[in-house]
Design a binder for these strands. Structure first.
Lengths: 356, 356
DNA sequence: TTTACGAACGTGAACGTTCACGAAACTACT
DNA sequence: AGTAGTTTCGTGAACGTTCACGTTCGTAAA
C-alpha cells in the first residue's frame, strides 16, 4: 500500500496545494521545506508531513529561476567503454559532488556523434562543460557563449580553459627506455579515430587508417612520437587502428606478420595496448623478451593484464582534480578565461611493470 | 579577440536585452530563437546575430517553468571504477540521448556515501532515477515521491520498477560446469561491501568479511550460490573480499595457501575474478588445469585477461536497454508502477573461454 | 474605395518559487 | 495595564520564458 491515498497522476502538487492543505501561506511552506528559521517546530512537521502525503516536490525550475543557477556541469566523454574515461569521470563526479555540483554526462561514442554534438546537446542544460572534445573545442566554446569550457587534450585557443599533456616528454621517456632495452625495430600503433584529428570525419587522411606505414600519424600524440622516433635515426613502423582492443589486436597481428623483426611496440593507449599484448601472445612471441609493449594512460586495468603492462601513466584522479579546480576558478572568477592560469599541462610518468 | 565587445560579466543577458537591442518584442525573439513561424527571415537572422553578440542563453529555468519538464534522469552508480558500471551506463546514456533525455550521474562509491545519498543528491534535479542502490531502494523511492525509480539488482517492493537477475539459474550453470570438469574442491568468493546487503555499513556481519569461511554470504547472489553448492553435497569454501581486483587477489591468495586442494573458484564478479586469476598465477598454479576460475558480469575486459575469463555473462547493453525502456513505459504511463510489467528478470549466459 | 485576409509583430497572463518586507501574536518586563 | 522585544506568519514583487491572444500593416480580390 502506497502512503499516498490515491493515483490521480494529473498535475503535480505545487507549494500552494500544500499551503492550502496546511492552512498556511506559501512562505511558511517554504520555511518548512528548506529548514529556514522563523517557524514553529510543530508547524514545520505538520507541513512536511502534508507535503509528503501530497507527493509535493519543489519545482527545480521555479527555484532555479529565483535563486539563480546552482552549478550544473556537462561532461562530454568520447567513449565510456574505454576504461580511461570512467576513471577520469569518476574523479570529476566525486569532486563535483563534494562542491554540490551536478554532472550531466554525455557519451558521444555512439551513433556517429561528435564532441560538438555532445556540447550542443548539453548546452541548454548546464552552466559549464568539461570534456574531451577531439578538436571541436572552438566551436563548442562558441555554442556555450560565455559559459566556461574546460577542454582536455589538444586545447585550441578558443576555450576558456584546458588541460594538455606533454606527449613529447612522455614519448621521450618511452623511446629512450626502449632503446636502453636495445630494441632495434620499434613500431608505434596510433589511433585513427577522426575525433583526435580535430576535423570532421570526411576530412581525415585515409592513409593513416591503413594497417601499415600509413603516412603521417593523425593524432597529436602520434605526431609527437613520430618526431621522436625520426630523431633516433633507426627505422620504425607506423600503423593505426580504431581505438578498441580488438582493432589494435588485429593491427598488431598484421604488423607481426609483415615485420617479423619488430621487437618493441609503443601504443596510443592502454586499452589498445591490451589488444597488442594479446596479438604478441597469439603470434607465439614472449613479452617482453621477444617484443616489448608500452601503453599510454595508466588505467588500473594494466596491472591485471599478463604480463602486467608497462605504460606512460597519467594520474587519472589528478587529471579530474585539475579539471574541476580549473572550472571552479573560472566560475568564481579567480581565473581569467583564456589566461595563462586557465591552461595547464600535465605530465606522464613511465611505470615499468612487466611488458617492457 | 572574442566576438563580444567587452567583459562586463555582471548579469547574463535576458530575452528583453536582446529584444531591446533588436528593437522588437520578447515574442519575436522567442520566435527567432526557437525556429517558430510567423517571423520574417531577415528579422530572424538579425535577432540571432544580436543574441550571439550579447551572449544570450535562454534560461533553462524559465523555459522549464512554462513548458514543463523535459525528462532529465538521474543515474546512481556505486563505482565507476568497476568496468561493469560504465558498460551499463554507456548503454543507458546512449539510449537516453536518443530519446532527448539527459543523464545526471552520481557515482556514490567515494566518501562513504550510500545509494540513498546518491538519490537524495539527485532528487531535486531529475524527473526519474535509474540506479544500483544496494538495498536502499525503498527509502530511495520515498525520497522521489511519485517520480519513477528503476532499481537494478535486488528489487524490493517499493520501487516503481526494476530489473532482477536470476542468480539461482546463473549459479546452476557455473556449478554444473565445474562439476562436469570434475572439480572436487570449489570455492566461492563473495563481495562484502555493505551496500549489497542493503543495510547500513555498521550492521553488516563482520564474519562475512573474514578471509575464509566467514559464515553466510552477504550478497543475494552469494546466497543463491551457497544454496547450490550446499546442494551438491561436496565440501566447498566461502570467502569474501571488498569489491576490487586487489582485495580479491589477496583473498584468493590466502585461500590458495590454506586450502591447497582448491581446484575451482567462482567469483562474485569479473573485476574480482581478474584479481583471482592473478592470485592463481602468483601461487604458481595453472588456470584452468590446476584451478578453474569463473567470473560473473560479462564485461569486455574478460577477453583481454590471460587466460581469457570464463564468465556468467549479462548482455550489458541489453540491461541498459531494459532499464531505459522500463522507465520510458513508466513515464508515458504505458506501464503501471509496481505492476508485473514493471519488474523484469534477466538471465546470465555461461560463456566458456579459457579459464574454466 | 472597400473588404478580406494573411503575414509580421506586440501584450497580458501564467508557470512556481524565494526575497524583502510588513503584520500579528505572544512573552517579559516595568 | 502599557511597552518593548521576539517569535511566527502572511503579502507584493520579481525571476525569464512561453502561450494565447490582439494589433498593425500590406496586398489582393470585390
Amino acid at each position: 500500500m502506497s502512503p499516498t491515498t490515491s493515483g490521480r497522476p494529473a498535475k503535480p502538487a505545487t507549494i500552494l496545494d500544500v499551503a492550502a492543505a496546511a492552512g498556511v501561506s506559501r512562505q511558511t511552506v517554504t520555511r518548512a521545506m528548506n529548514g529556514m528559521p522563523g517557524i514553529r517546530e510543530s508547524t514545520r512537521e505538520r507541513v512536511q508531513e502534508l507535503a509528503r502525503e501530497l507527493g509535493y516536490t519543489p519545482s527545480r525550475f521555479a527555484k532555479g529561476l529565483v535563486q539563480g543557477s546552482r552549478t550544473s556541469v556537462g561532461l562530454a566523454i568520447p567513449d565510456l567503454t574505454n576504461p580511461y574515461f570512467p576513471a577520469f569521470a569518476s574523479s570529476v563526479v566525486e569532486l563535483a559532488t563534494q562542491r554540490g555540483w551536478h554532472i550531466v554526462v554525455d557519451d558521444y561514442g555512439h551513433g556517429g556523434r561528435s564532441g560538438l554534438d555532445a556540447v550542443e546537446h548539453l548546452a541548454p542544460h548546464v552552466d559549464a562543460v568539461i570534456g574531451y572534445l577531439g578538436g571541436y573545442a572552438d566551436q563548442a566554446q562558441a555554442a556555450l557563449g560565455r559559459r566556461p569550457l574546460i577542454v582536455l587534450d589538444e586545447i585550441p585557443g578558443g576555450a576558456a580553459g584546458g588541460i594538455n599533456f606533454d606527449y613529447a616528454r612522455a614519448g621521450k621517456l618511452a623511446v629512450e627506455h626502449l632503446r636502453t632495452m636495445r630494441r632495434r625495430s620499434i613500431a608505434y600503433l596510433d589511433a585513427c579515430e577522426s575525433r583526435h584529428l580535430g576535423l570532421p570525419p570526411e576530412s581525415r587522411d585515409p592513409l593513416a587508417s591503413s594497417p601499415l606505414d600509413g603516412g603521417v600519424p593523425c593524432t597529436v600524440r602520434g605526431k609527437a612520437v613520430a618526431r621522436l622516433l625520426d630523431g633516433t635515426g633507426t627505422p620504425w613502423s607506423l600503423l593505426a587502428a580504431e581505438e578498441t582492443a580488438g582493432a589494435a589486436r588485429a593491427a598488431a597481428a598484421a604488423l607481426l606478420r609483415e615485420r617479423r623483426d619488430t621487437d618493441g611496440i609503443l601504443v596510443f593507449n592502454d586499452l589498445m595496448a591490451a589488444g597488442v599484448l594479446k596479438a604478441v601472445a597469439d603470434a607465439g612471441l614472449r613479452v617482453p623478451e621477444d617484443c616489448a609493449v608500452v601503453g599510454m594512460d595508466g588505467i588500473p586495468l594494466g596491472e591485471l593484464l599478463t604480463p602486467e603492462l608497462s605504460t606512460l601513466a597519467l594520474d587519472l584522479r589528478e587529471v579530474g582534480r585539475a579539471a574541476v579546480e580549473l572550472l571552479d576558478g573560472l566560475l568564481t572568477g579567480a581565473i581569467e578565461p583564456g589566461s595563462d592560469a586557465s591552461r595547464l599541462t600535465l605530465v606522464h610518468q613511465l611505470i615499468l611493470r612487466k611488458s617492457a
